[in-house]
């Protein structure tokens, strides 16, 4: 059984209400439609390589920081305008992990991508989406170690 924080589990429960593939994709697209890249003031380009999501063909970048209460703030950029799956994944991670502790985020199972997108993802697509989760976890683990 995979571990998911409450907000992420809630999103997955909502998605599970759409067993039909097309309906689920439409829900994911509506999630992706809310995605916005960081402004130049927030993160100027070119983005640093150590924030680039490994294996992501949509050229996604991730930043994870802590607020004054040691709660996570997640930011994601997706440079490929056709990177719809990456945008949906970014919004789901942001909706579910913003405000969580870094310890919680560090334990999210990477298999969440299959619970979101289904198991019919191509290898390239799944590796890119999994890479985004891994990078968020990597930064969260680093932040969990800082007091």
């Amino acid at each position: 059984m995979n571990f998911y924080p409450a907000k992420l589990q809630s999103i997955l429960d909502d998605l599970a209400m759409f067993p039909d593939r097309v309906e689920r994709i439409q829900v994911l697209i509506s999630i992706a439609d809310r995605f916005k890249n960081p402004t130049e003031g927030e993160h100027p380009k070119p983005y640093p390589d150590d924030h680039k999501v490994p294996a992501c063909e949509s050229e996604a970048f991730v930043w994870v920081s802590l607020d004054d209460e040691r709660k996570l703030k997640l930011e994601v950029a997706v440079l490929n305008p056709q990177g719809m799956s990456a945008m949906a994944m970014a919004m789901i991670l942001k909706d579910s992990l913003d405000g969580e502790s870094p310890e919680t985020a560090a334990h999210v199972s990477e298999d969440v991508i299959y619970d979101i997108f289904g198991k019919e993802l191509s290898m390239g697509k799944s590796m890119g989406l999994m890479g985004m989760v891994r990078l968020v976890k990597h930064f969260a683990r680093d932040l969990a170690g800082t007091k």
């Binding site: 994709i25 994911l28 992706a32 056709q82 990177g83 719809m84 799956s85 019919e120 390239g124 697509k125």
Partner: peptide
């Protein structure tokens, strides 16, 4: 496509 969301988008 490779990306399953693209067509519906």
């Amino acid at each position: 496509n490779e990306d399953p969301l693209l067509y519906v988008s």
